[in-house]
Simulated scan of single mutants.
Amino acid sequence: MMTDGTSTQADIDRVNFLLTLRRRGISDQAVLRAMGEVPRTAFVSADLATSAYADQALPIECGQTISQPYVVAYMTEQLGVKPQHRVLEIGTGSGYQAAVLSKLAAEVVSIERYRTLADQARRRLNAAGCGNVEVIVGDGFEGCPDRAPFDRIIVTAAAEEVPAALADQLADGGVMILPLGPQNGPQHLVRITKSQTPEGTRLAEDRLIPVRFVPMLRGKAREL
């Protein structure tokens, strides 16, 4: 809010945005607080600022998108991040999801295949005071093995199956959220919970909600 007691349109949009999240079933107070603290306008281009708080995905550079606020909040809530957790994010994009996670976790490592997006996200995250986020240019399918294990892993692009390297980098008792499904077919958010049993490693899978994400691609981008 402005110091003279009046409200800007951005203030009003942010309040309505939080009310929409509550109406759609987001109830975790820490997640709602994080969503309210991160200025979504700082993670979209200036020409889309007036649409930043609309509950819709928006385009960003390199043919990617910033997910709609509800999906960001829902994935974050289902991930169950605690203050002591180390989180791996696959697909930095604009940096918005990483910024939300930074309010909840001890450390966030985010992998982005496009150098342009990684550089922009670092600038935005630094400006937003998200000092516990590290953005790395790399192949999301490979994760970040030298920093593993991670308590939580979130993937913001759709894979056709759970990447084996990411499952390996998930800590015992850890949780991974990712969209699964073909590029041109039905996709669902899936929650994977890892546990060790006498028979070996177990990955329990819960199907959550239908979604639509850009495809997860292998390797670093040769350009951009």
Rank of each mutant, 00 (worst) to 15 (best):
I177Y: 00
G36Q: 01
S27Y: 06
I192Y: 05
S7A: 12
C144Y: 11
R122A: 01
R147G: 08
L101Q: 03
L79T: 06
A171H: 09
Y114K: 09
A148R: 14
A106S: 08
R212A: 13
P145I: 13
Q97W: 01
L58A: 06
V175D: 05
P39N: 04
S110Q: 02
T3H: 08
Q97P: 08
F150I: 12
L203G: 11
A34S: 04
T201G: 08
D47A: 12
L58N: 07
G173A: 13
R33L: 05
L58S: 07
S94L: 02
G25C: 13
M216E: 12
G131F: 13
L18W: 00
H85A: 00
R24Y: 02
Y96G: 02
G140S: 09
F141R: 12
S94K: 00
Q183T: 14
V155T: 10
E112D: 08
D4N: 15
V100M: 02
L217A: 14
L189V: 09
C144G: 06
A46Y: 06
R22E: 03
R212E: 13
Q78Y: 02
Q183Y: 08
G129Q: 11
L208A: 10
G80H: 01
A30C: 04
C144F: 09
R23H: 03
L21C: 02
R222M: 12
I153R: 04
E199W: 04
G91R: 07
A148K: 14
E223K: 12
M216R: 09
A221S: 15
S102V: 09
N126Q: 15
A34W: 00
L180D: 06
E77G: 08
M75N: 05
N184E: 13
L125Q: 09
G63P: 03
Y70K: 06
D139C: 13
Q78W: 02
G5F: 04
M1W: 03
E61M: 07
R24I: 07
D4S: 10
G181F: 03
V109G: 04
N126K: 15
V31Q: 03
S7N: 10
T193I: 15
D4V: 11
P83I: 03
L125C: 10
D146A: 15
G63R: 03
A165E: 14
L180I: 15
R40T: 07
A98I: 00
I60F: 00
M216C: 12
A158W: 05
D55C: 05
V31M: 02
A54H: 11
T8M: 10
R123S: 06
D47Y: 04
A164N: 09
A221I: 12
N126Y: 10
R202T: 14
I60G: 01
A148V: 14
T41Y: 03
L79Y: 00
R113N: 09
P83L: 00
I209F: 04
E161K: 11
D146C: 14
Q196M: 14
L203C: 12
G143H: 07
D11S: 13
R222F: 10
R86G: 04
Q120I: 03
L104R: 00
L79N: 02
M176L: 12
K220H: 11
L203T: 13
S195W: 09
T6V: 10
R218A: 15
Q97F: 01
S45V: 08
A10E: 14
A164G: 08
F213V: 12
